[in-house]
Amino acid sequence: MSTPSVVSSQSSQAGTGQMREVTLGQAIRETLAEELRRDPTVFIMGEDVAEAGTPFKVLSGLVEEFGPQRIIDSPISEAGISGLGVGAAMTGMRPIIDIMFGDFIGLAMDQIVNQAAKVHYMSGGKLRVPLVIRTTLGATRRTAAQHSQSLHAWVSHIPGLKVALPSTPYDAKGLLKTAIRDDNPVIFFEDKMMYQLKGQVPDDDYTIPFGVADVKRAGTDITLVATSSMVQIALAAAEQLAELDISAEVVDPRTTTPLDKETLIASAQKTSRAIVIDEGYERYGVTAELAAVIADGAFYYLDAPVKRLGAMDVPVPFSPVLEDQTVPTAEAVTQLAKTLCGRV
């Protein structure tokens, strides 16, 4: 993270130990290792998670420490492993199911939406599903329409699920610990393009509570609400805007469900303008929900309509020149922010 004016709140239960630099991928791996050591009921199941360590190599080394009984290579059966995860979670385990690409959750949707999300409610609160499904989002990896989508809106829509979207190694670690220790099904989306992103994490154990947004950069003129992959875009835009003397505040909700409405609304009330940036499809997406929350809660403070920037409503194309058109860029954010601030 190259932005000097970051004021990440690194909230309440933050670790205070020695800080060190890791990549987001390393942060995920060491979090999983720490939780596997801490709790014998935690296990990881998915396609190519053991010796292969996934195509992203995020899990490399885990099978060597924890063995094939806990780091389990599965058949290519997203519905089956998700369903097995639900049942194992209901009966004493804390499964972490790895769905390699977020695009594949379509295969597992009944297990996630009709089983995992509803078991606790349908049983009148008797049964619990402490399940984590880790998956990925994000385009621009040149993997075309079926390996590039950001589908977190689908699951954010469903009562009973929690949805986490880390944007830094620090957040990834704290949010993943919370996810694993939570008694509810959590869908944990990692931006596959951010695994090499570096950031500081403390040595000691810490968690980040769900439903607590983080102000990644403080500002006064416009609020940029950004999720996951779009946080870095928003921070880059904020740098560009600073050069134009526009002070942008970057707010990262970190979880879409539960959602920290208060922080979003308070920021928009303070700055009087807001843009919501998310890599999911713009139509009926996360940007729509967050924009509605801000419009509803900050209406009388706003000097401009709340604007949205999401992925273009097209299947993600393969050709790089086409794909690059489909996701929001720092330049697009900057341009829109200038317009909202009357600086055309």
Partner: peptide, 11 residues
């Protein structure tokens, strides 16, 4: 419930 039952057996 096929997944759930199999998961229970796994546990």
């Amino acid at each position: 419930s096929a997944g759930i039952a199999t998961g229970a057996a796994f546990s």
